[in-house]
Design a protein around this nucleic acid. Structure first.
Lengths: 208, 208
DNA sequence: CACCATGCTGAGCAAGCGCTTAGTCAGCGT
DNA sequence: ACGCTGACTAAGCGCTTGCTCAGCATGGTG
């Protein structure tokens, strides 16, 4: 095999190819382990061994274990926000955009479930300054989704009584995919995205 | 104040009143801490101190830190399954039952978000035997939801193309509430439940 | 009164943690 | 040949962890 199945779990993140290969190996090993066992249950020895180095080598590339988490979380959030913005800024009316947003958002959380878990379920382990950055990105994501629902409601394409609640439901569905989706899931990320897109449009009262 | 706000976070679990008061205090302290920081970031000293005892006292009531987690997780899952079964076995057609199920399921995950987080996000920290018990309960919950959707589809009340995917979406929405709901949320658990009930019925293609 | 079970504490142990240090070594410009 | 650099390791430091244990106060029972 030319590439392990694990390689697919790590999404194309901004600047992924620009850093030294050893640092990138550490990032991937850390993401795998954080996703599977959680940040606090992962030891620096786990990460270093999985990356094929001694524990001390980790500190040449990263200041601390928490710095690895911060890097993964910030890159993952940035990638998600970009994905959302591209869907919202695309062609078509609100319903068409929303369908594309949910398809992409859902498929990303299935495909990159490893990073997705770290992004969504290890927030509490982030150092305060990294958390501030990430919280801002999360707010931006929520705002993009809310704005799109509002636009759809204004255009008469959606019927929603509470925009914030509807937005929560939409993002919730996608985020939770990274919790339950596994290798053994029979649906491909793209299939799941299409089905969730359908469900969300109905949920928002769009005429199909 | 006669009762702290924390008291409301701990739901009425089976056998809650039957155990010694000190053990119950430990359970609550553990649930709070596991929910906020995660199992591995919580120390036995944290739990004991929050329960007003020395670390050694913990081991009079529980065999280990993991035994506390197992107890919380099993009780939480059992309570959820009971809630689901009661909604499914209630009066009315599939749509009416589904509405009740989502209302209760959602409200529980908002009200008991502390236990809900432990139940849904600390599964990986469970000892193997406790995990087996809990996994069986989770399967039962999923089956109840799937069966109800199937009944609704057969009765012509729902239009769903993939029952499993629809069931996933329904439970996902409820589970994820325990991740994002906080004290500062403006909606009450009951309000949220009603709104989510509405959204889910539309998602399932029910004529309203 | 003695007796002992119960619920608890203070002190502390072995193991494992994040991280540091001193030193090795291949590669490279001069 | 030389000194320098950047990536790496073996060893281990200081500290925290989950958990244990000897002993103490309390209160019901003979």
């Amino acid at each position: 095999m030319t590439s392990t199945p694990m390689a697919d779990l790590w999404p194309t993140l901004p600047g992924a190819g620009t850093r030294p290969e050893a640092a990138h190996r550490l990032l991937r090993a850390a993401a795998e382990s954080f996703a599977e066992r959680g940040f606090h249950a992962t030891t620096t020895r786990d990460i270093a061994t999985a990356a094929g180095m001694s524990p001390a080598a980790l500190y040449i590339h990263y200041q601390s274990k928490a710095a690895l988490l911060a890097e993964i979380s910030q890159a993952g959030h940035a990638a998600t926000l970009t994905l959302v913005r591209e869907a919202v800024a695309g062609e078509g009316g609100p319903a068409e955009r929303m369908r594309r947003l949910v398809e992409q958002f859902t498929a990303w959380h299935a495909r990159a479930r490893t990073v997705g878990r770290v992004v969504n379920y290890e927030l509490h382990a982030l150092p305060e300054d990294a958390y501030a950055v990430v919280a801002a990105l999360r707010l931006d994501i929520e705002r993009e989704v809310s704005a799109l629902i509002e636009a759809g409601a204004a255009a008469g394409e959606f019927q929603v009584s509470e925009v914030r609640t509807a937005a929560r439901a939409v993002t919730s569905l996608g985020i939770d995919v990274s919790r339950w989706y596994t290798d053994r899931s029979t649906e491909t990320p793209e299939e799941l995205g299409r089905r969730y897109g359908e469900l969300v449009l109905r949920m928002l009262g769009a005429r199909l």
